[in-house]
Amino acid sequence: MIRGVRGATTVERNEAEEIVLKSKELMEDLVTKNKILPEQVASVYFSVTEDLDATFPAKCLRQLQGWTHVPVMCMKEIPVPGSLPLCIRVMVTVETDIPQDAIHHIYHHQAKQLRPDLKK
Rank of each mutant, 00 (worst) to 15 (best):
R6P: 03
E95Q: 10
P57L: 05
R115N: 09
L114K: 12
L30I: 03
V80G: 05
I98L: 15
A58D: 12
K22E: 14
L26P: 13
V11M: 06
M1R: 08
I19S: 04
H104N: 11
V90K: 07
Y107S: 02
L118A: 08
V31A: 02
A54D: 11
T93E: 14
A16N: 11
A8L: 04
E17F: 04
W67S: 04
H105M: 01
D29L: 14
I106K: 12
R62S: 10
E95N: 13
H108C: 01
Y107K: 05
L61G: 12
I78Y: 09
G4F: 07
D51G: 05
K24S: 08
T93Y: 15
D101W: 00
I103W: 07
G4R: 05
H108D: 01
V90D: 11
Q113E: 12
I19F: 10
V48K: 08
L86Y: 14
L26G: 13
P81V: 03
F46W: 07
E15D: 08
H105T: 03
P79V: 10
F56V: 05
Q40G: 02
E50T: 13
N14H: 09
K119S: 08
T32R: 12
D101C: 00
N14G: 09
S83N: 08
P71M: 06
L61S: 06
G66D: 12
C74I: 08
I78W: 07
I2V: 15
E77A: 10
H105G: 10
K33F: 03
Q63F: 01
K35T: 12
R13Y: 09
D51M: 02
N14C: 03
S43G: 10
I2T: 15
D97F: 07
K35E: 13
L61C: 03
P81R: 12
D97L: 06
Q110G: 00
V70S: 11
G7K: 05
E15P: 01
Q40N: 15
V48R: 14
D97Y: 03
K120P: 15
D97S: 14
R89M: 11
